[in-house]
């Protein structure tokens, strides 16, 4: 039985959009040297806020805007903890996920059972937000590699002591990066509630935020890599479902493990190349996950 590759690709575009947004956001956060494990919490916040706004105003695009703001707003809790109170990033991120899931579930009660307005299809009958996600990939790449702000952000992430010595504001840079990450995660979450399901239900992001974290690693911290990762992770799911639909028996559990193993292999390969050839590649940002406190 033949499966039309184009149809799989079209499915893939929609399926990978939430994780693409979240992962692009987290990419910028990590390039600034911050590891935010609260992606799931920010996504669910965006899913609720976006749905609430889309439902109340009847305008799905306004929903995405509100979702971005809500995602950025809740990310500021994490930012305050890690950048101002200098708390551990891993623990703070986990706490943000827990808090976000609970808060969204609590505030979402009035929106249960109602339906979001349908979205108008974009060019080529592909959702506007899918297009936006694809456009964000080169934009993020351009920002990181071709702008002065991007350079500063990378410097902060690579070695915050040195960046500080050069007079860059570490805290402000990281706050901005975290807010951007929150906004992107918010949009990704809202894509699930507004474009995919059209309803709000508790826990509807169902672990997408965790996949986004894996994608950033897979990407080797580059924007094109994030797109490839989102397509790989989305693609494996789409492909196994598509094969099932065509009546082919697939070992679902083993197949779904594959992208994570691929991520580990990619990570190891890149680390090894850096270690043995001593070539300055991209790789994990040097200051990833560590807090910075200026003594002066």
């Amino acid at each position: 039985m033949m499966i039309d590759p184009l149809s799989v690709f079209l499915l893939l575009l929609g399926a990978s959009t939430p994780i693409l947004f979240a992962a692009l956001g987290e990419l910028v956060v990590e390039r600034a040297g911050v590891l935010n494990l609260g992606v799931e919490g920010m996504m669910i916040t965006g899913a609720l806020a976006g749905f609430g706004a889309a439902y109340s105003t009847g305008n799905p695009f306004l929903g995405f805007l509100v979702a971005a703001c809500a995602g950025a707003a809740i990310s500021m809790l994490f930012a305050a903890l890690t950048q101002v109170f200098l708390a551990n990033q891993v623990a703070s991120g986990l706490a943000l996920t827990l808090f976000g899931l609970g808060l969204a579930a609590m505030l979402g009660k009035p929106f249960e059972g109602v339906r979001a307005p349908s979205m108008p299809a974009g060019p080529l009958r592909i959702n506007w937000i899918v297009w936006l996600g694809l456009v964000m990939v080169p934009l993020v790449w351009w920002f990181l590699n071709r702008t002065r702000s991007g350079l500063i952000l990378r410097a902060v992430g690579e070695n915050h002591e040195a960046a500080h010595a050069l007079g860059y504001n570490i805290r402000l840079t990281r706050l901005a990066a975290i807010a951007f990450g929150g906004a992107m995660a918010g949009v990704g979450g809202a894509f699930i509630s507004i474009a995919t399901v059209l309803q709000w239900t508790e826990g509807m992001t169902a672990g997408a935020g965790w996949i986004a974290l894996a994608i950033v690693v897979f990407s080797n911290w580059t924007a094109p890599g994030v797109l490839a990762g989102a397509w790989l992770f989305g693609g494996v799911t789409v492909l196994q479902l598509r094969l099932q639909a065509a009546g082919v028996a697939v070992p679902v559990q083993l197949l779904s493990m594959a992208p994570y193993l691929a991520t580990i292999i990619v990570l190891v390969a890149i680390s090894a190349r850096q270690k043995f050839s001593r070539r300055a590649g991209t790789g994990a940002p040097g200051s990833l996950g560590t807090n910075f406190h200026a003594l002066r």
Binding site: L11, G14, A15, P18, I192, T196, V197, T201, G203, M204, T205, A206, A208, T237, V238, L241, R242, Q244, A245
Partner: peptide, 12 residues
């Protein structure tokens, strides 16, 4: 219950 995955399954 996994809305995103159910949507993908429906699309497949």
């Amino acid at each position: 219950f996994d809305p995103a995955k159910e949507a993908e399954a429906a699309n497949a």
